[in-house]
């Protein structure tokens, strides 16, 4: 980039530029290219080592690893599988998305279109600060502060909306430590990443189009609905998926809030749930040989899932950012 080919307007074809680099430059380039490759190598190593360590467990459980609902890898005859925890992970992540996506879209719109200009930067910093609060503290806040306030809401939902299977609870069901509460806390943790992606994409809406809408007599909401939101659709999808990736991997907050059970149930308001990441965190201390390997296998599944979600997300975001074919 620094030594690009200079073109002169009058010349029809650019003069070929031969760059001869000094020894120092060659070393510098090698070093920085090496650092760039380091990222590749690191990701490869993470995948490779998880696979290597997971093999004994996968061999012991076979196909059952994907279907079993129990987790007893260190028993004399080990039985374990990630079906229940994977289900729990996805449930918590979906609950989180259900809260986080509308909030993030609104916050991103607020930061790009509605907030007073002087307030935008400080507000953006505050949203970023929300991302800097440690997961651990979110978890503690969730269980000590949020939970007592949410339980009445859970009770209300289960009383008046029990025709929906997700809001049903057993008659003796407790409402603390539920996936619902964990999902709420995780929602708060993924709002910053969703918001920042959406905000960036919304901010790239061509001003001429927005002004055109306003000039045609649209209200601000009309402008947002017809110009900003359609332009930002890729950002909304990509940002939500990035948030989903983060929500799937959220560990400590979920581990603190949830009370782990190994069942597949749609009743999200009820005590008990699970996630892959919190399973790893909670079972690591007591795991023995096969147990450790089984946790590695669970980690591998989590890694593969988040990687896939994140890659699709960055692909969507990268495509939506181009803004090509738009005259400004």
């Amino acid at each position: 980039m620094a030594t690009g080919t200079a073109t002169i307007e009058h010349a029809p074809t650019p003069r070929p530029v031969v760059v001869s680099r000094t020894l120092g430059d060659r070393i510098f380039r090698k070093l920085s290219v090496g650092a760039g490759w380091g990222a590749f190598i690191l990701m490869g190593l993470i995948g490779m080592f998880l696979v290597i360590r997971a093999i004994p467990a996968l061999r012991a459980s076979g196909f059952g690893f994907l279907t079993h609902l129990v987790w007893r890898p260190d028993a004399p005859s080990p039985v374990f599988g990630i079906a229940a925890v994977m289900f729990g992970t996805i449930v918590i992540a979906l609950i989180a998305l259900a809260f986080a996506v509308p909030l993030s879209i609104s916050t991103a719109l607020f930061l790009t279109e509605y907030a007073p200009r002087t307030l935008r930067r400080p507000l953006r910093s505050l949203v970023d600060l929300l991302a800097a609060v440690p997961s651990l503290i979110y978890g503690m806040w969730g269980i000590f502060f949020l939970q007592p306030k949410v339980i009445p809401l859970s009770k209300w939902l289960s009383t008046y909306f029990h025709m929906l299977p997700i809001f049903r609870v057993r008659s003796d069901g407790f409402l603390a430590s539920s996936p619902f509460i964990a999902g709420m806390v995780v929602a708060l943790m993924i709002v910053p990443i969703c918001t920042s992606v959406m905000r960036e994409v919304f901010a790239q809406t061509p001003p001429s189009e927005k002004e055109g809408a306003l000039a045609l007599g649209a209200t601000r909401w009309g402008m947002v609905r017809t110009v900003v939101l359609p332009f930002g659709r890729g950002g909304i999808i990509g940002g939500s998926m990035l948030g989903l990736g983060r929500a799937l991997g959220e560990t400590i907050a979920v581990a603190i809030i949830i009370s782990p059970v190994f069942t597949i149930t749609p009743r999200i308001l009820e005590t008990g749930g699970n996630s892959v990441a919190s399973l790893i965190a909670l079972r690591f201390g007591e795991a023995k040989r096969i147990g450790l390997s089984a946790l590695m296998a669970a980690g591998l599944a989590l890694f593969a899932m988040t990687l896939a979600v994140n890659m699709v997300a960055s692909f969507v975001v990268a495509r939506s950012r181009s803004g090509k074919g738009v005259e400004i």
Binding site: I46, L50, R53, L242, T251, G299, T306, V309, M311
Partner: peptide
Amino acid sequence: AMSGVPSIVAGLF
């Protein structure tokens, strides 16, 4: 993609 690696996976690695 690396920024999306769950922290627990980094620990396991």
